[in-house]
């Protein structure tokens, strides 16, 4: 029963929001290019779904690749930091500073370095999603139970053994938290990258579909692209969440 409610309640909320949207539009006679009706948004998609599906695939694959690269390099960086205090002290503050640079400000540079297209888009996804992975993994690597650390010391374990057999397994829960956050951010980074570096045309990603919709005053198409972008982000997040909770089951006491 509670399970049914859990799925059912947000559906009701969604229905209410759509109804309010519709009612608002009709009541205040809002023009279509400002706020299309839910129906015309649905129609914009259903009339010709193909470019949107291609857009989803394009954006989704860039976000997934960006996420995976961020996961690999983020975990690697956190591991190196955790093994060497000196490397961490000299690199981590700079990394934090870099994180503060607005993505929109460096996105044009990415185009200079990687050219227009997927390279710069994936790079943008990596930049946005790598920091929570580094920060959470590092926190987890440092959070090994001091009593277990003492046990390993008593058993005369070397630094590498402590790291591999104690720190890494202890870091798994917070590493997975970082990955979940990153999964959501990767899509945001991808869309931002597409705004600057995406190609229009047959393989246009969602970010470009948003832009062309805006230029042609097809606000209903903008809505479709935005909603699909949210859906892609959610799908990636859900995929990572589900696989991480399956993995976590072994780790939780």
């Amino acid at each position: 029963m509670t399970q049914v409610l859990r799925i059912f309640s947000p559906c009701i909320t969604l229905a209410v929001v759509v109804l309010l949207w519709w009612a608002g539009k009709v009541l205040f006679e809002v023009q279509d290019f400002v706020l299309p009706s839910p129906w015309s948004v649905a129609q914009a998609f259903l009339v010709d779904p193909k470019p949107f599906m291609i857009g989803c695939l394009e954006t989704g694959s860039c976000a997934a690749i960006g996420f995976l690269l961020a996961a690999v390099f983020g975990i690697l960086a956190a591991s190196i930091f955790s093994l060497s205090r000196r490397v961490e002290q000299s690199v981590y503050p700079i990394a934090l500073l870099l994180q503060m640079v607005p993505l929109i400000a460096i996105a044009p540079l990415l185009v200079v370095w990687f050219g227009y297209g997927r390279g710069a888009i994936v790079a943008s996804a990596v930049i946005v999603s790598i920091f929570p992975i580094i920060a959470n993994t590092l926190a987890g690597l440092r959070a090994a139970d001091p009593k277990l650390v003492e046990l390993f010391t008593l058993l005369r374990a070397g630094r590498i053994a402590v790291w591999w057999k104690l720190s890494i397994p202890s870091a798994v829960p917070s590493m997975l938290t970082g990955l979940r956050i990153a999964a959501g951010l990767a899509t945001i980074g991808t869309i931002a990258g597409e705004f600057i570096a995406g190609f229009a045309g047959n393989n246009a990603p969602l970010g470009i579909l948003v832009m062309t919709g805006l230029r042609n005053f097809q606000t209903d198409r903008v809505f479709v692209a935005v909603l699909l972008a949210a859906l892609v982000g959610f799908a990636l997040f859900a995929l990572v969440s589900v696989s991480s909770s399956l993995l976590l089951r072994r780790w939780c006491k």
Binding site: F152, L155, R156, A161, K165, L166, V172, W251
Partner: peptide
């Protein structure tokens, strides 16, 4: 170690040596 089975927990001192 919560992520290890009883056998691997008990074997830890031998594993480390």
């Amino acid at each position: 170690l919560p992520w290890r089975t009883l056998l691997d927990n008990v074997a830890l001192p031998l594993e480390l040596s």
